[in-house]
Design a protein around this nucleic acid. Sequence first.
DNA 1: GCCAACGTTGGC
DNA 2: GCCAACGTTGGC
Length: 231
Amino acid sequence: MPRQRKRVSGCAPEPEMEAPSGKRTKATKTETLDKPVVEEKTADSPKKDQASKHCGNEPSAYWLMKSEPESRLEKGIDVKFGIEDLKAQPKQTACWDGVRNYQARNFLRAMKLGEEAFFYHSNCKEPGIAGLMKIVKEAYPDHTQFEKDSPHYDPSSKKDNPKWSMVDVQFIRMTKRFIPLAELKVHHQAHKANGGPLQNMALFTRQRLSVQPLTQGEFDFVLSLEDKKPS
DNA sequence: GCCAACGTTGGC
DNA sequence: GCCAACGTTGGC
């Protein structure tokens, strides 16, 4: 799958412009939205259901979405899209395009208006959580799947039954301080031993998933780190 | 740049 | 349906 990245604002209405980056994956179930459930699953095919197996079961209200803040070319197009890029969009809103992983797509499709997500910087010098954003438009077809020049073009996807979805997100704020992956990892390791809130965090248990749910406990714990000294 | 993790593809 | 080969993600 692709990396995720998102694109920029108002994607929905106008098809032209380029879409910048994209994120990496995401996905939901099969076509039309079937149910609101969150599923995860892995694979691909469109199966669905069973969702609630491990990761999150019920609809999560909190998410973590990865994007690359540093320039990198894919099919000659720069996929860079960091939180500063989101902030710079009109209305500080962008569409999160480019997710090409079924599990991630399913999470995108499960997102509801107003839900909050951490903006995570991946594949860069300092990976970690940079800020908060919210879902301002629920899942709709990712137009980049039909664009031949897009790094995320998918020739197998048909217009009358789009495979990939995206949501629109709006910048809320930067975290009071950048929360590095390394710091989260230290807590995750400790929590595995003592049963703390980050013991099953998807960032570590589902390594390559670019759109992932967080439990309330995970979300609250991560946010509490903002006010603490970097460990 | 290396490479481990892990998802996808395709032969059989 | 198994599984080896391959491709991608993404930390380091």
